[in-house]
Each structure stands twice: as structure tokens, then as C-alpha cells.
Amino acid sequence: MDIIDLFSHGFIQRALIAGSFIAILCSTLGVFLVLRRLSLIGDGLAHVAFGSVAIGLLLRVYPVYVAIPVVMLSSLGILKLIEKARLYGDAAIGIVSSLGIAIGILLASAAGGFNVDLFSYLFGNILAISNVEVVTSIILSVMLILIILLFYQELFSITFDEESAKASGVKTKTINTILVLLTSLTVVLAMRIVGIMLISALLIIPSVTALQMAKGFKITMVIASIVGVLSVILGIFISFVINLPTGATIVILNFIFFAIAFVCKNLRS
């Protein structure tokens, strides 16, 4: 089977389109999260998404509909814990994350296990996404990317230094809220591609790879997006051709790109 034949499959086309949009979104957002030392918020919210999926499956409601509000509320909970309980970000993420996964396990256990359905969310299955999911992914990705572009200067400013941003009139609380809400929606969107277990890789690795080659902030975001999209496209093809799990293949490719960038940077210096 050659490359052209692969493109003729509807499910490959859907995976490539939805995956590329979500990769751009994750990579762009990831640059802000990594530099704000909030890299693991994706992981924490993914664990909450696991709990939400379990609730959805138990109530026989489409899990994404449950995950969106629950993950968004949890991200606001993380912000409140940092602000009010004066916790460091990693501790606040840890609390919400373990609570999410505990709820998921309890519900799965109470329901006698959800087997295939729950596993498809845990490990992702981009090749099985429907037309509706593709359209939803595109619309949401475009909307979220537009929001990032709209608030780019504010996000850039609080990422560099929150105190200076405040003294420039940036409403830092509002921008922090926007950042975590964007992350929540991205996590829910991305869970169908790489799965709950591997979402944070899509947020972190392309950004860290781009940081190895950084020559400016905007260019870092562009490089991160290119790396993210390339990993998704190559991951889909390679996993299909040699029959590997797609999500894991995408993550491994991301790591390979990071390793190449890291070695090149060190050879240069």
C-alpha cells in the first residue's frame, strides 16, 4: 500500500485533519504552560477527564459532554488552590489530579468496569473518530487558537513576569483564568487522539523541542506547532503501516524530535 492509497481512506483523512488542528493548539498553548512551569496541568486535568469519562459512561451520557464542564471547573479549582491556599502549582495540580483519578477508579469499580469504552479514552483512538468529532475538533481548535492570538500580548506578558504585567494594566487573574480554561478544553479535545494517559506529552514535548531552537517567542510557537503537526501526521502513517498504537507512536515521535533538537543544540554550542 503506498502513501496515496493511505490518503484515500476516510478515517485516515479525518485523523490527519483533526490531529493537525489539535496538534497546533496543544503546541501553541504548551509554550505558555511550559514557561509558566505549569507543564503538568495537562496531566492533572487529563486525570480529571478520566473521572469525568467514568461519570459519563456510568450515566450513559456522551463522556465529552461531562468532561468539558468538570475539567473546566477543576482547572478553576487548581487556580483557587494556588491563590487561596497558597499552594505551589505542582501541589495544587497533584491534589486535583489524584482526586480525579480516584473518582474515576471508584466509579469504574462500582459499575463493574467499563472495559472497551474507558480504554478508548485512556489510550486514545484517533483512527476511530467520527465526522462529527472532526468538525467539533476543527471548530473548537480554531476558536481556541483565535483566543490565544487575541490575548497573545497578555499571555506573553504574564508568562515573562506576572508582576510587571500587572503594572502594565494586564488583568492577570482574568488572563490566568483564560489560560487554564483553554487548557481544559484542549485536554478534552486531545483525549481522543493520544488518550488521557499521554495528553501532557502533546502539550509539553513540542514546546520543549522548540525551546531548544528558540530565536524569539513567536518563532518558538511556530516551531512547536510544526513539530506537533509533523509528529501527529507521521505518527498516524507509521502506526497504521506497522500496526502500532497511534497515540503512543505520536508521543515517541515527539520524543525523537526533541532528542534530535537537543543533540543539535549541544553540538552547535
Binding site: Q153, A210, G216, T220
Partner: peptide, 13 residues
Amino acid sequence: PATVREVVAMGLL
């Protein structure tokens, strides 16, 4: 990963 120009430009926000 910001250039000097990008950092100083933030002062105009």
C-alpha cells in the same frame, strides 16, 4: 525564549 526587542516592547502594553 524572547528577544531583547520583544521584552522591551512589553513595556508599551
